[in-house]
Every structure is written in structure tokens, then in C-alpha cells.
Amino acid sequence: MSDLSPGRTATEIVPAISVMDLSHSFKGHQALNQVAFSVMPQTLHGFVGPNGAGKTTTLKVICTLLKPNWGKVQVFGHDVGRESVSVRKRIGFMPDHFSMYRQMTVFEYLDFFAAAYGLSMGQRDQVIHDVLTLTDMDGRRNDLISGLSRGMQQRVSLARVLVHDPDLLLLDEPASGLDPRARIELMEILRELRRMGKTIFISSHILSELAELCDSVTIIDRGQVRFSGPMDALLDNSQDHPTYNLKLASVEAHVIERLRSLAGVEEVSEPEVATGRDFVIQLSAETSANSFLASVLTLEVPIVAFSQQRRHLNQAFMDLTSRGVRT
């Protein structure tokens, strides 16, 4: 499908999701307050926030279930309020709870949704085969949904949102309640879908996996966006004081003092669990990694690894969001 609205040029990329000045309140409670962010096509975008931050409300607005009080939301250039049918054809929404017809078999469940999206019987056979293969559920097509484990039901749910080949997938807490294996397998499927050109908007609490998986991220708290942009920009440490990890092959005498004596080094410390071989080095803003590494080589210590220290998403999340539960 084309992502070009009338009047746009081929070089101008239409965002998969564009949220502008979105505000919404329920019975006097301000759930969203001037939320704004955009998601580029064919990216995997994380949507993070504490409980009650407004994640699900935002998702419901994007997937046309909820009409916002104020603001504008577009999906591939289509307004979610005025062009809801067009939007629904291009998105697949997987809610955080299992809303499944448990008395159906896997095949019947997918057949039903494929037919509901207007696919002919021949198309349905092919599509169901494809999505079951992708989610590795082909061998369970005749099983009753009620007899499947939670992880398998999650896969079927994912297969369901794929039957009409949507360009944008909206996943609300897709990994919640899954065991580690099922979670890893789900993440693999999401990577595969991104490779296939899908845009994936994923709301999740599992920050470590989001950090590995997502190209970009939006952090929301108390109905307001605290950060929205590339994951690297969020995780890279402060640009004023870049921090690096240095690992040596063996324990060397007075190595901390020798490192501190190098030009541009502001601080040298050891991690919480000191090994005598691992060091965290903070450089001054004007010192480059190259010049520092050249200086270290002059010390003639056995270097095993040298990398920029990245902030963990947990830390970024804690820094950006307020403490306590929203009232």
C-alpha cells in the first residue's frame, strides 16, 4: 500500500503514526495531556510508561476504538476519527488481555477473522498457512484454543492480527505473563516481522527486551510524553561526559592511578563487584574515544575490550518518570 497522501512527494515519508497534541479525559480525570510523537514506517517503536500513564488510552485512540477529546492522530496519513475504516484495514491491534473464542480451533479462529476482513476462501487458506508458519503454530492448527498454553494463545493472537496483512501492528503488553522461552520466541517473531517491512508499535513493561528490540521509543508518564526519539539517543550516556568500559586480560599493578594520569580522563572507577580488571572511565567532553584509546595503548596494559557505556533503559525510565502511583 502507498504511504503517500495526495499532494505529497515520494521523498516525503508519511509517518506510520502521527500523534499531535492529543488530550483526553475520563469524567474529569486527565488521562492524556497534549501528547505528541510520531513513528516512522518499518520501525519497531517501544511505548513505555508506568501503570496509569496513559499507554492503553493512547493505543485505543490510535486503533480507532476511542475518539479523543482534543488533538489529531493519523495512521499512514489517515485520520483515525474520520477515516476509521481505512485505518482499521491497515492496522492490527493485539490487546493486553486474551480476547479469544476459546471453543474454536486455531484454524477456525483465524478463518473467522480472515473472513471478517473480507478475504476469499482461497486467500484465507494461503494466509492462514503463512501466519501459522510464521508464528510456528502450523502443527497446532486443529487444536482447541482452550487447550493451548498462554504462550501459544499469544502466538495465535499475533497470528490473528496478521491475517489481513496490516502495515502497522499495535501490541499492548504482548509478552506479559509469558515464560522466558515464549518471550524470547515472541521477540524473534517481532524481529522477523520488522524484517518483512511491518511497523510495530509495542507497549511493554519489559524494558530490557525493548532496549534490544526497538529502534525508537516513547516514554509517557502522567499523560505526558517525557521522551520520544531513537533508542540510541535515550540510552547513550550524557554527551557532556562520555563514559567507557575498559576490560583488561589480567590484573595490573597501580592501573587506576596510571589511567587517571592520562590526559582527558576525569574519573576512573571500578564496578560494584570489583575484579581488578574492569574499569569505568569518564572522559572530559572534548576528549575523543580514539585519543583516549591511543593513550591507553602507551601504558602497555593487556586490553581485552573497550566500549562506550550505555545507560540502561531501566535507568532512563526511572530518571524520566515520576515516582509513585498516579492518583
Binding site: 480451533t105 477456525e108 473467522f112 473472513a115 471478517a116 486443529n142 482447541l144 482452550s146 487447550g147 493451548l148
Partner: peptide
């Protein structure tokens, strides 16, 4: 409940394929 329903053949007879009026089929059958 049991992981497998009836056999695919029985299931084809009792449930069959989804009609183009999918919701009518779903509610009629289930």
C-alpha cells in the same frame, strides 16, 4: 479442557468453513 476437539473430519461436518458473513457463521455455529 481437552487439547484437541473432535477429529478434523467431524469438525468439518459440524463446524465447516467460515461463511462470507463471518459473524453470522460464528454465532450460528458457536
Amino acid at each position: 479442557t481437552a487439547m484437541h476437539g473432535e477429529s478434523p473430519t467431524t469438525r468439518r461436518l459440524t463446524v465447516g468453513r467460515c461463511w462470507s458473513l463471518s459473524l453470522t457463521w460464528k454465532d450460528f455455529v458457536f
